[in-house]
Measured scan of single mutants.
Amino acid sequence: KPRTPFTTAQLLALERKFRQKQYLSIAERAEFSSSLSLTETQVKIWFQNRRAKAKR
C-alpha cells in the first residue's frame, strides 16, 4: 500500500495538534480526521509514528 503524501497544511495541523496533546481520544480523532479530510487510520498511525519519533 503506497504511503500517504500529506499536504503541508495537513502536516502543520497534525504537528500543532500533537504539541497540544500527544494522545487523541476516538472522538477527537474522528472529528480531527474529517476536518483534514484524512481517514481516522491515517491520523492514528501518524500520531503513533510521531510519538515514536518524539521518544528518539
Score class of each variant (00 low, 15 high):
Leu11Thr: 07
Glu40Tyr: 02
Tyr23Lys: 08
Thr4Ser: 10
Thr41Ala: 14
Ala9Arg: 08
Ala30Ser: 09
Val43Leu: 06
Thr39Val: 01
Phe47Leu: 01
Phe6Ala: 01
Glu31Pro: 04
Pro5Ala: 08
Gln48Tyr: 04
Trp46Ser: 01
Leu12Lys: 09
Arg51Asp: 01
Pro5Tyr: 12
Tyr23Pro: 02
Ala9Asp: 13
Ser37Asp: 10
Ser34Ala: 14
Arg50Met: 09
Tyr23Cys: 09
Lys53Pro: 05
Arg50Ile: 01
Lys17Asp: 06
Ser34Trp: 06
Ala9Phe: 10
Arg56Glu: 14
Gln42Ala: 13
Ser35Leu: 08
Thr4Arg: 10
Arg51Thr: 08
Ala27Arg: 02
Ser25Leu: 00
Phe32Thr: 05
Leu14Trp: 01
Arg56Gly: 13
Pro2Gly: 12
Ala13Arg: 08
Leu38Met: 11
Leu12Thr: 15
Arg51Glu: 11
Lys44Thr: 11
Thr7Arg: 00
Ser25Ile: 03
Ser37Asn: 13
Lys17Met: 14
Val43Lys: 02
Phe18Arg: 03
Arg29Gly: 10
Asn49Met: 08
Thr8Ser: 13
Leu11Gln: 09
Leu38Tyr: 03
Arg3Cys: 10
Arg16Gln: 10
Trp46Gly: 03
Ile45Val: 11
Gln48Ile: 05
Lys53Thr: 12
Ser33Gly: 07
Ala30Thr: 10
Arg3Ser: 15
Arg56Phe: 14
Ala13Ser: 09
Ser35Lys: 13
Leu24Asn: 02
Ser25Lys: 00
Ser25Arg: 01
Gln22Phe: 08
Ile45Tyr: 13
Leu36Pro: 04
Trp46Thr: 02
Ile45Arg: 06
Ser25Asp: 12
Thr8Gly: 09
Ser37Glu: 11
Ser34Asn: 09
Lys55Val: 09
Lys1Arg: 06
Glu31Asp: 05
Arg29Leu: 15
Lys53Phe: 07
Thr39Arg: 00
Thr41Asn: 10
Ala52Cys: 13
Leu11Glu: 14
Thr7Leu: 03
Trp46Leu: 00
Lys55Asp: 13
Ala52Asn: 05
Gln10Ala: 00
Glu28Lys: 12
Ile26Gln: 13
Lys55Phe: 07
Ala54Trp: 11
Lys44Ala: 12
Ser35Thr: 08
Gln22Tyr: 00
Gln20Cys: 07
Arg51Gly: 05
Trp46Arg: 00
Arg16Ala: 14
Phe6Arg: 01
Phe6Cys: 03
Ala30Gln: 09
Glu31Asn: 13
Ala52Arg: 06
Ala30His: 11
Gln10Asn: 07
Tyr23Phe: 11
Ala9Glu: 14
Lys17Gln: 12
Arg3Ala: 10
Leu14Met: 10
Arg50Asn: 03
Glu40Asp: 10
Leu36Ala: 07
Lys21Phe: 04
Thr4Val: 11
Arg51Cys: 10
Gln48Pro: 02
Thr8Ala: 12
Phe32Glu: 05
Arg16Asp: 12
Gln10Arg: 03
Lys21Trp: 02
Glu40Cys: 00
Leu24Pro: 03
Ile26Asp: 14
Thr39Ser: 13
Arg56Gln: 14
Val43Arg: 03
Phe32Met: 08
Ala30Phe: 05
Phe32Gly: 01
Ala30Gly: 08
Phe6Lys: 11
Pro5Arg: 08
Glu15Lys: 06
Thr39Glu: 08
Ser37Thr: 08
Ala27Val: 10
Lys17Pro: 01
Ser35Glu: 14
Glu40Leu: 04
Ser25Gly: 05
Ser33Ala: 07
Ala9Trp: 06
Ala54Asn: 09
Val43Asp: 13
Val43Trp: 05
Ala54Leu: 08
Gln22Gly: 07
Thr8Asp: 13
Leu24Thr: 01
Pro2Val: 12
Phe6Glu: 05
Thr39Gly: 07
Glu31Ala: 05
Leu12Met: 15
Arg19Tyr: 07
Leu24Cys: 01
Lys53Cys: 12
Arg50Ser: 08
Leu24Gln: 07
Thr7Gln: 03
Ser25Phe: 05
Thr4Lys: 05
Leu12Ala: 11
Ser34Leu: 09
Ala30Leu: 09
Phe18Asn: 06
Ala13Trp: 01
Glu31Val: 07
Leu38Arg: 01
Ser35His: 10
Gln20Met: 08
Leu36Ser: 04
Ala52Gly: 09
Ser35Val: 09
Ala9Pro: 08
Gln48Glu: 15
Glu31Ile: 05
Ala9Ser: 12
Ser33Asn: 05
Ala13Asn: 06
Ser25His: 14
Leu11Pro: 01
Ser35Asp: 06
Ala13Glu: 12
Ala30Asn: 09
Leu14Cys: 03
Val43Phe: 02
Phe32Asn: 00
Glu31Lys: 04
Pro2Tyr: 11
Leu36Phe: 03
Pro2His: 07
Leu24Lys: 04
Leu36His: 06
Thr4Asp: 12
Ala52Glu: 15
Thr39Pro: 08
Arg16Asn: 12
Leu14Asn: 00
Ser34Gly: 07
Gln20Pro: 00
Lys53Glu: 13
Phe18Ser: 01
Lys17Val: 08
Glu15Trp: 04
Ala27Trp: 03
Arg29Phe: 15
Phe18Val: 00
Thr39Asp: 13
Leu36Asn: 04
Tyr23Trp: 10
Ala9Cys: 02
Arg29Cys: 14
Ser37Gln: 10
Phe6His: 04
Phe32Gln: 01
Ser37Cys: 12
Arg51Ser: 10
Phe32Ile: 08
Pro2Cys: 06
Phe6Met: 03
Ile26Cys: 08
Lys55Asn: 10
Ser34Tyr: 02
Phe6Val: 00
Pro2Ala: 12
Thr8Leu: 12
Glu15Ser: 02
Thr41Met: 10
Arg51Tyr: 08
Arg29Tyr: 15
Leu14Gly: 02
Gln20Gly: 07
Gln20Trp: 06
Ser33Cys: 10
Phe32Ser: 01
Phe47Asn: 07
Ala13Pro: 00
Val43Ala: 00
Pro5Asp: 13
Gln42Val: 05
Asn49Tyr: 11
Leu38Asp: 05
Ala54Arg: 05
Arg16His: 13
Glu40Gly: 04
